[in-house]
Design a protein around this nucleic acid. Structure first.
Length: 804
RNA sequence: GCUCGAGUGGCGGAACUGGCAGACGCCCGGGACUUAAAAUCCCGUGUCCCUUAAAGACGUACCGGUUCGAUUCCGGUCUCGAGCACCA
């Protein structure tokens, strides 16, 4: 029989579609399994071969769970707001919706051609107004609870396009589109207080089954640090400057202070500063620098000292100078630091450049502190530090904080690197922010009954000259009345970032057509949490963190009952081009999934995607590898014509069958898809060597292979008349005893080198094994006339004879 | 600079808690079938020594250590990849 994969996959894809084979049921009595993959941005390039790596992996898990009797939810949708569609709209004067719809249709066709078992009735689209109605609803709740607020923030501004840019549009300090200069411009932006959740976002990771590197990067990104805030008094006044430090132990070594150039104190004290011109000049220069320049110039410290004022070191009364420098960031801590050049590299660089004193307060360094800063916390001992002298650093930190709190000049303080989420975009293609500005009432939310607040139709998608959102041109839409006082009001013209819609989409899949709530309570309680979520490492610190934050918020207001959205998170590696470089048009190494499916079929494509290499590692594409998998498909297909007359497992295949079931079962759970497939290949090789297969053996093989190659296994199941459909079969079980061999070949080593092999019954204990080995021909030959010093026997593995 | 990951045949990769390194696939070589080729099936395939085989030696980035035994554990070095990057 010919393996006509086109015919086979068309037939079964149609069957699954028509019969809604993979629809999740809302029968709450069943045990559930919620498998989730990151929904794609439907780009104009279509599906990349990287997408199906993740989708096939969880498709295999989902299909296996169904065979194990679970009620499985495995959904798909579209993260469809975003920049490329908007840029395309600007360039071609076409509404972004049109291009988005076209791209979605293409993506959907491609996904269907690969045979994923998605429940297409639950498809969601973030740009659908019935979807973003609930994105807006969540925003209103955040606003209501004080977690959304407006603040002036610097944005990336292209001086040539006159448009605000996302960070990913700034390449090497230039505008990605026109190459123009990018500077920082201050704009009033909506912000979300994710920092309120910082501690919980760290703490709750503990109980989650996330791969370790995801946990580590989230913790690092949130960047918790413990230290103290300390007040320094301005000499001759009672005005204080508060600094944040993680090393209060080094306070005796603080020889100067540094304020960020944006620090408000500079304005306050302007009448006291005698070199105000130089200070103003430095502030202007710093403001002009882009984020890029500020970090690029990192090594070369700059700064200006404030003449006319001094600060007093609170522990020793020394008057120290105050500087401003852009190495101190206004956005972290208090925007001011105490500088301890002996024990901080940055302060050391700065002190060296400007000739400031360096005082050692922690001893134990290999080099003199005038040569290099000594920053080791674990092994130093305090010197030149008054009441701290002689203490270890750790103890000195504790004692200093106690002292500061006692004297009322400082306190213990925890800081986070994580900053609040800039939630505004001056863009058209995003969810409108459902607030209006009223001169009398301030920012007022629109009533829930008016949701969704839909995007107005506009002619022109280009931003305004000052970087306003394109929505600012929709004057009819903007001018409205205040829901609170009824007076005239204007709508917010900023839209939400792409991260908004993806922060809660997994909830909408649970009940996608609900018009009264984002999802019904009952269904949320049944399906949550997501049991297994797979996605890229690039989403670890943004999407994954944002969605955990929103979920925790929804938990706090009682919408969901689980404090965390995802029980388990795994991550796939990248698929590279054949030349081991990242796939890209310019490198000419892009593989189009359509071509592979067309030439070799969906089953081969899926199998190869899983066989390509270790799932979590990046690995190059290989067309020869695809051919190898295709050959495997054909070899399995041809087993239909090799049936030998026997129903169950043949005696000499019993062991192999049970071993294969165990291997495939375990390996799928561990995401070792490549070795699961290798095990099935080995079994097939053995069947060929044996000259045929029994119906019982083939039946088991078809079920094991079904999650990976669903089309072919359905067809064969039907051809062979096994009854019903393979997707309704029961996942095979193995008997642990039958996976073991009766006879085992053990290795005989002399002094750790292999000198022979011996076949022995399985399960022999150490003594019996040693005896057998020493008495065996192989053993005697190996020992020869040397003295046996020691014998190490490992049951079922080896005997190592140590001789002299 | 910091954090994380990785380095194994010609190539992609196996090796669960230290126990036969190289499963499985690709490439390559040989054979069967065929008028022939393709496809298919079977066999071989880490390196060195060698006509071949046996036997032996070497071999998991590099140097050292622990151990009867190390791809696996420990210390150090190098290379590559990803992310973060003046966070006081």
């Amino acid at each position: 029989m010919d393996y006509d994969f086109h015919k086979i996959q068309d037939k079964w894809q149609k069957y699954w579609d028509d019969n809604k084979t993979f629809a999740a049921s809302d029968d709450f009595s069943k045990k559930k399994f919620y498998a989730l993959v990151e929904f794609p941005y439907p780009s104009g390039q279509g599906l990349h071969v990287g997408h199906p790596r993740s989708y096939t992996a969880l498709d295999i898990v989902a299909r296996k769970r169904r065979l194990e009797g679970y009620n499985v939810l495995y959904p798909m949708g579209w993260d469809a707001f975003g920049l490329p569609a908007e840029n395309y709209a600007i360039a071609n004067h076409i509404h972004p919706r049109i291009i988005t719809e076209k791209n979605i249709a293409n993506f959907k066709r491609q996904l269907k051609s690969i045979g994923f078992s998605f429940d297409w009735d639950r498809e969601v689209n973030t740009t659908d107004e019935n979807y973003y109605k609930w994105t807006q609803w969540i925003f209103l709740k955040l606003f209501e609870k004080g977690l959304a607020y407006k603040q002036e923030m610097p944005i990336n501004w292209c001086t040539s396009c006159k448009v605000g840019l996302a960070n990913e549009e700034v390449v090497g300090g230039k505008c990605e589109r026109c190459g123009g200069e990018v500077v920082q411009k201050r704009k009033s932006q909506w912000m979300l207080r994710i920092t309120e959740y910082a501690q919980r976002l760290i703490d709750d990771l503990k109980d989650l089954d996330f791969i370790e590197k995801v946990k580590v990067s989230q913790v690092n990104w949130i960047g918790r640090s413990e230290g103290a805030e300390v007040d320094f008094v301005l000499a001759g006044t009672d005005r204080k400057i508060t600094v944040y430090t993680t090393r209060p132990d080094t306070l005796f070594g603080a020889t100067y202070m540094v304020l960020s150039p944006e620090h408000p104190l500079i304005d306050e004290l302007s009448d006291k500063i005698t070199n105000l011109d130089a200070v103003r000049e430095y502030q202007t220069q710093a403001a002009k620098k882009s984020e890029f320049e500020r970090t690029e110039m990192a090594k070369d410290k700059t700064g200006v000292v404030l003449h006319g004022i001094k600060a007093v070191n609170p522990v020793n009364g020394t008057e120290i100078p105050i500087w401003i420098s852009d190495y101190v960031l206004m956005t972290y801590g208090t925007g001011a630091i105490m500088a301890v050049p002996a024990h901080d590299e940055r302060d050391w660089d700065f002190a060296k450049k400007f000739g400031l004193p360096i005082i050692e307060v922690v001893a134990g360094a290999e080099k003199d502190v005038n040569e290099e800063a000594y920053t080791n916390v674990s092994s130093g001992v305090m010197v030149n530090s008054g009441f701290l002298t002689g203490l270890k650093v750790k103890d000195a930190i504790a004692k200093m904080i106690d002292y500061l709190e006692e004297k009322g000049i400082g306190k213990r303080k925890v800081n986070f690197k994580l900053r609040d989420w800039v939630f505004s975009r001056q863009r058209y293609w995003g969810e409108p922010i459902p607030l209006v500005w009223c001169e009398k009432c301030g920012w007022v939310p629109i009533p829930e009954s008016e949701l969704p607040l839909t995007l107005p139709e506009v002619e022109d998608f280009t931003p305004g000259d000052e970087g306003e959102s394109p929505l600012s041109k929709a004057t009819d839409w903007i001018n409205t009345t205040c829901p609170h006082c009824g007076g005239p009001a204007k709508r917010e013209t900023d839209t939400m970032p792409q991260w908004a819609g993806s922060s809660w989409y997994f909830l909408r899949y649970i009940d996608p057509h609900n018009n009264d709530a984002l999802a019904s309570e009952e269904k949320l309680n049944y399906w949550l949490p997501v049991d297994w979520y797979n996605g890229g490492m690039e989403h670890t610190t943004l999407h994954l963190l944002y969605s955990r934050f929103w979920h925790k918020f929804l938990y706090d207001i009682g919408v969901v009952k689980t404090p965390e959205p995802y029980a388990k998170r795994t991550s796939h590696g990248m698929i590279l081009g054949e030349n081991n470089e990242k796939m890209s048009k310019s490198r000419g190494n892009v593989v189009n999934p359509d071509d592979v499916v067309d030439q070799f079929g969906a089953d081969t494509f899926r199998t190869y995607e899983m066989f390509i290499g270790a799932f979590d590692q990046s690995t190059p594409w290989s067309e020869n590898g695809v051919r190898g998998c295709h050959k495997f498909m054909e070899r399995v297909w041809n087993l239909q014509d090799m049936i030998i007359d026997d129903e169950g497992y043949r005696a000499d295949f019993e062991n192999a069958m049970h071993k294969t079931i165990k291997k495939v079962t375990d390996d799928i759970e561990r995401m070792k898809f490549n070795t699961a497939i290798a095990a099935m290949m080995s079994l097939v090789n053995d069947l060929y060597k044996a000259g045929g297969v029994t119906r019982g053996e083939l039946k088991t093989l078809l079920i094991l292979l079904n999650p990976t190659a669903p089309h072919m296994t359905e067809e064969m199941w039907q051809n062979l008349g096994f009854g019903g459909y393979v997707h309704e079969a029961k996942w095979p079980e193995y008997d642990e005893d039958k996976t073991r061999d009766d006879e085992i070949e053990i290795v005989i080593q002399i002094n750790g080198k292999i000198r022979g092999k011996l076949s022995v019954p399985a399960g022999l204990d150490r003594d019996a094994l040693s005896k057998l080995a020493l008495e065996s021909e192989e053993g005697k030959a190996a020992v020869g006339d040397k003295n046996v010093v020691k014998v190490i026997a490992v049951p079922d593995k080896l005997v190592n004879i140590v001789v002299k």
